[in-house]
Amino acid sequence: MPGRARHGRAGDTGARRIAPGSRMAAMDAKLRRAGPRSRYRLRKQVVEPVFGQIKAARGFRQFLLRGYAKVRHEWALVCTVHNLAKLLIARTA
């Protein structure tokens, strides 16, 4: 069973052949030209730990209010509490 290839390297089955002038070739050139701070590389960043901390540490599993505006305000309150708790922990450390 072949393993997973690292980004930018050929897999166990060899390099992928891309037809010149195809859409794949254009995208390949675009990704090579973009550099290390490209939008596609930034998509690899993980933001999920924040949601996990809010769910586990704060016990926030569901919204208590109904309606988009009320949910938006409730979420802002939950995020504010989370950020204030992080600031308090950083201040005491």
Rank of each mutant, 00 (worst) to 15 (best):
R66N: 09
R39H: 12
V78L: 06
V81A: 11
G21W: 01
T92A: 12
R17G: 01
M1W: 09
R58T: 05
V71W: 05
R43Q: 14
A93L: 14
L88E: 10
E74R: 01
V71H: 07
A5K: 14
A25C: 01
A90R: 07
H7N: 10
G14K: 01
A93C: 13
I54M: 03
V71Q: 08
A10K: 09
V47A: 10
A15T: 04
A25N: 02
H7D: 12
Q45C: 10
R4M: 09
V50M: 08
G35Y: 06
A90H: 10
F51I: 11
R9W: 02
V50H: 04
T80D: 07
I18C: 01
P2A: 13
G11N: 03
G59A: 09
S22V: 03
E74W: 03
A76Q: 15
R9E: 13
G67I: 06
G8T: 11
G14I: 02
P20T: 00
V46G: 03
Y40L: 07
G11D: 04
R72A: 12
A29M: 02
D28F: 00
G59T: 08
K55G: 11
A76K: 13
E74M: 02
L31Y: 03
A85R: 15
H82N: 06
R58W: 02
S38T: 07
T13M: 10
R61H: 15
E74A: 02
F63V: 04
G3H: 07
A5I: 08
A29C: 01
G59N: 11
A10I: 03
A57C: 12
A25H: 00
R91C: 11
R32A: 13
S22H: 02
F63M: 13
A85K: 15
A34N: 06
R66F: 08
A57I: 09
C79I: 15
S38I: 08
S38E: 06
N83P: 05
P49H: 05
G67Q: 04
H82Y: 14
F60D: 01
P49R: 03
Y40D: 06
P36G: 11
C79R: 14
G21I: 01
A56Q: 15
T13A: 14
A5Q: 12
L77Y: 05
R23V: 02
R17I: 05
A29F: 00
A56C: 11
Q53N: 13
L87I: 07
